[in-house]
């Protein structure tokens, strides 16, 4: 283990501890609610990173996957009258199935075709949930979705849910981290950079694409299931293209392919509009303009921009040091 990695791991642990004690100091439900929304969004973005960030396939149908996860979990909890945890397992299964199904078109169509396919998919899902009134309650939505509970301990307040979601998001983060820096992750990335070369080196592209899509869909569906039990009420009108777009914006602001960036993207896009609320009528347009300028000037994400700015200053300093003590260092 290099020194650099040790420092990085220490940083992450400090960050984790800091985040874990948040509810002890923040008793305000509004802030906790926003934190919870960030955690759920972060899970989606971590998943989206595999398909859109790493393999470079543009998925604009995340809201559809999210909705399927939410409804799968809510419906089985309601009708089979069982624990939401089973719903979470079902959501994982649903995610796997969606991944296999959506992965297939990504073999045939790519780029802009794929984004249209995924948009169409998400719209079909939304319209089906709206109009299959007998099963889903249609546009009246589903109410009284049970919160998670563990050995009789109910996660029914924002503070309690924060811990639960935090643990799940942290778990999702580490899995994503491990995958991105594994052999799979490198194959995913190489697919984006040069698909032909990857195929030449004997990698089964079809298999890789479907893998990426499946991981993405499982993350999306799990986040959807969490959302259903977090809100306690779901309605198909939530799961629009706007929602899918928001997830991609989070990914973009965090920086494509960067796992830590994903988390920061989710944080920035969820919190920034809330902070801008003091601008009244102009808050949404201001938010959009900031995001657009960010996308144009820092296409590698804000995190990367900050890091590079930091590196530049460090470089300047270390250059000076190096000049002073060239002979000593080597």
């Amino acid at each position: 283990m290099t020194k650099k990695m040790k420092i990085r791991i220490a940083e992450i642990i400090i960050l984790l501890i800091a985040l874990l004690v948040v509810p002890l100091f923040v008793k305000n439900n509004y802030y906790l609610l926003v934190f919870n929304r960030i955690l759920i969004n972060a899970i989606v973005v971590l998943g989206l990173n595999f398909i859109t960030g790493l393999t470079g396939q543009m998925n604009l149908g995340m809201a559809g996957i999210f909705a399927l996860g939410a409804y799968a979990s809510a419906l089985i909890t309601r009708y089979a009258n069982i624990s939401p945890w089973v719903g979470l397992l079902l959501a994982i299964a649903v995610g796997w199935v969606i991944g296999q199904c959506l992965g297939y078109p990504s073999l045939r169509v790519k780029g802009v075709y794929l984004s249209l396919t995924t948009i169409g998919f998400a719209e079909v899902i939304r319209l089906m949930f709206s109009n299959l009134t007998d099963i889903t309650g249609g546009t009246q939505g589903m109410r009284n979705i049970e919160p998670y509970s563990l050995f009789g301990f109910k996660f029914d307040t924002q503070g309690k849910m924060y811990y639960l979601f935090f643990v799940i998001t942290a778990f999702g983060f580490f899995i994503a981290w491990r995958i991105v820096y594994s052999k799979w992750g490198r194959v995913f990335k190489s697919l984006r950079d040069n698909a032909e070369a990857v195929e030449m080196s004997g990698v089964d592209i079809a298999d890789v694409k479907i893998k990426a899509f499946t991981i993405c869909a499982i993350y999306g569906a799990v986040a959807g299931a969490l959302y259903a039990h977090f809100m306690g009420y779901i309605n198909p009108s939530t799961f629009t293209i706007d929602m899918s777009t928001n997830f991609v914006i989070m990914l973009l602001i965090g920086g494509l392919g960067s796992v830590i960036g994903n988390i920061f993207g989710a944080i920035i896009v969820t919190i920034l509009p809330e902070m801008l609320r003091f601008l009244d009528d102009y808050y949404l347009i201001t938010f959009s303009i900031i995001v657009l300028l960010g996308a144009i000037f820092f296409p590698n994400g804000w995190v990367d921009a900050v890091v590079r700015l930091g590196k530049k200053t460090i470089n300047i300093i270390s250059d000076k040091r190096a000049e002073n003590g060239k002979a000593v260092s080597r």
Binding site: V34, R37, G141, Y233
Partner: peptide, 30 residues
């Protein structure tokens, strides 16, 4: 819906006595 819940939580944290809205039934249910 999720924004309606956020708004309501924000207003509650700002210690309002009562809340008017949200308008749509779906948001009220949320």
């Amino acid at each position: 819906q999720d924004m309606a819940v956020t708004c309501v939580e924000k207003l509650i944290s700002e210690e309002v006595v009562g809340i008017i809205g949200p308008h749509r039934s779906t948001n009220a249910l949320a």
